[in-house]
């Protein structure tokens, strides 16, 4: 089988990257090790844990179940596109205030799942939040404080409007 390299052009967090990749390179590995965007984490590589969730053309998907070559011509957003330590994204701020993270490994995946979710559902119920994050596993928090954080972010967002 070929070890052929495929040229790809991908826009990640607004920056255009041109690289050459093997067909089998997983998008998660490409983002982490070729582009050095280490905030996307790899927890299972079979699409269950959700730690590698990113936005692909705006939709939350598993980056471990997409080949990097398939990202050619597409737009990706990772956790690095949200806030900075000095200026957190409102959802990151709510995660901080509600203690919605412990080891932090699953957190980028939760954030990338929840950012588009909150855009589509600005006033979710607790049950809707739980359903939305059922594709993300957290071993530390028991999810309680994550749900609180999402409600906090939703409440602050409607106050701001």
């Amino acid at each position: 089988m070929s070890n052929k390299l495929f040229p790809i052009t991908v826009t990640v967090n607004g920056v255009e990257y041109k690289r050459e990749v093997e067909a089998r390179l997983l998008l998660s590995d490409f983002l982490r090790h070729d582009l050095g965007l280490l905030g996307t984490h790899v927890g299972c590589e079979h699409g269950i844990c959700g730690a590698c969730t990113i936005l692909f053309d705006g939709g939350a998907v598993r980056s471990c179940l997409i080949f990097a070559v398939q990202a050619n011509g597409h737009e990706i957003r990772t956790v690095e596109s949200l806030g900075t330590p000095e200026n957190l994204h409102p959802l990151q701020q709510s995660f901080h205030e509600k203690h919605a993270l412990q080891c932090g490994f699953c957190t980028p995946g939760f954030l990338m799942t929840l950012v588009p979710f909150l855009e589509e559902n600005p006033h979710p119920s607790d049950d809707e939040i739980r359903e939305a994050i059922d594709g993300n596993i957290c071993r530390c928090t028991g999810y309680e404080k994550i749900v609180e954080a999402v409600q906090d972010a939703a409440a602050k967002n409607s106050q701001a409007k």
Partner: peptide, 21 residues
Amino acid sequence: IKRLEDKFMLTGNVKYVDDIE
């Protein structure tokens, strides 16, 4: 007290072992 480590973890600015190259 809210955690001091959070803002770095939340933004992908901490290194886990696979992040070390």
